[in-house]
Design a protein around this nucleic acid. Structure first.
Lengths: 246, 246
DNA sequence: CGCCCGATTGACAGTTGTCAAGGAGCGTGG
DNA sequence: CCACGCTCCTTGACAACTGTCAATCGGGCG
């Protein structure tokens, strides 16, 4: 599926070209990026980096999904970031990874060697500007997430997560999806629990409850059908229009 | 206290000059900033902006403390940001405030008209670079905060907040504070509850519990004494060294 | 076929929220 | 100067939600 990217190796043909950190680059800037880039592939479940590890690259997610998470000594884990295609991984100026990064599906990264990338940021404005924009978006997303973690009930948390994923799917396909929606959960129950600050049992119970109340329907464990999207939004606890970013 | 700033009106004499968004500016860039800046003062408890409001400025906090928060329809409120002196308020490219901003002490802002500030970001690199750095720091802080909200117990939450505040105080005074620490809580119990995703009753009970266990001592309601800082850190649930940013 | 992993469900316990009463500090006004 | 009212905080009793522990289910794969 992502093999095309490897073959092409050409930014112009890149599927995330218009959304990634390189989105605003001029042709000469792209050339400089091409010089320092290389692709890496990770299989589902594989750890990409561990928090505290040396990290001598930054990267764009080309395909697949990865998570950022923090663990406490006793094993409690909180996901703090969900990386989708076009999202940026790593921080210029930081040598060690701050979080654990895990592939939750097969993942292809477009990596840039850190040092040259940092120089590039200093000297060309378009990468830095785009990175600022993306970081501000991530910060907004983190703040929505904080509301979910701090103040929502388990049921509202699950509904919120479903709504977020449904919106992203819709955004990717550029389809408004009429009224209903149908999407695939990219996360296991455990990943959902780590995302929402719950246990897997509570996640499972609340999904069953939403199913029982006909807010959602399931096909298998992963495919979700939402007959009335507004009904789902009402369950998130957000106001009518919903301000969920991302 | 902040009156000096108003009198001077001179960036060179500004107390946050070296940490704010203007930290890396060259003299000519500072001049351009001076042209579009103006000071505003808010009293403790006053709302600075409401989420959704038109906002035609961005700003640096010169003195005092302000909070960013989101409210749900039914009144549940989650704080999503705590603005201290030198922190940045607002987002270039955004017309409407995304969050409620409230002064929790008397606050002085150094405001920049939004449009000219956005132009400045496009044309001069140093403001944008510094803003990127600050935004990345905020994102890290938000992610630490997410771990607190999602996975820590009420007791750990309170201990974490105390540790964060104590560290900030120490950073401001550039003092290492030997082993013990002594600081003033800048937040009401309600603000602490909104910060931590708790109720004021739980906040109050856990503070009492930490007091009873001699982890902290109180002078009045706001002044906190920490006889053994490592003991407090142990209560946060973080590993030995603790990775708390900010 | 049997194993394994992820998911579901049940019973119960524990933490935190809710509701309610009362205390402490502080400014105002008699 | 004291009383009053106000706000913020504390504490108690109880309820509710979510976590814990355990058993079971179901699909995929060797």
């Amino acid at each position: 599926m992502a093999e095309l990217v490897f073959d092409a190796n050409d930014c112009a043909a890149c599927p995330i070209r218009h959304r990634a950190v390189c989105a605003r680059c001029e042709p000469d800037e792209l050339e400089r990026l091409e010089e320092i880039k290389y692709y890496r592939h990770f299989e589902s479940g594989q750890h990409i980096v561990w928090g505290g590890d040396q990290m001598d690259f930054v990267a764009s997610v080309v395909s697949g999904i990865a998570t950022l998470s923090q663990a406490m000594e006793d094993g409690r884990t909180q996901m703090v970031g969900l990386l989708l295609p076009s999202d940026f991984l790593g921080r210029p100026g930081r040598k060690e990874a701050a979080y654990d990064v895990t592939a939750v599906s097969d993942v292809t990264l477009c990596c840039f060697r850190r040092k040259p990338f940092e120089q590039l940021i200093e000297t060309t404005p378009h990468v830095a500007q785009r990175l600022l924009e993306m970081t501000l978006d991530e910060l907004d997303a983190a703040r929505e997430w904080m509301l979910i973690l701090g103040r929502k009930t388990a049921r509202e948390k699950i509904a919120s997560l479903m709504a977020i994923i449904a919106r992203r799917e819709a955004a990717l396909r550029m389809s408004k999806a009429a009224n209903g929606a149908r999407f695939e959960l990219p996360l296991t129950r455990e990943a959902m629990a780590d995302y929402l600050g719950l246990t897997i049992e509570t996640v499972s119970r609340q999904i069953s409850a939403l199913k029982r109340d006909n807010v959602i329907a399931l096909e298998g464990k992963r495919k979700v059908l939402v007959p009335d999207f507004n009904r789902l939004l009402a369950e998130t606890g957000d106001d009518a229009d919903g301000g969920l970013l991302i």
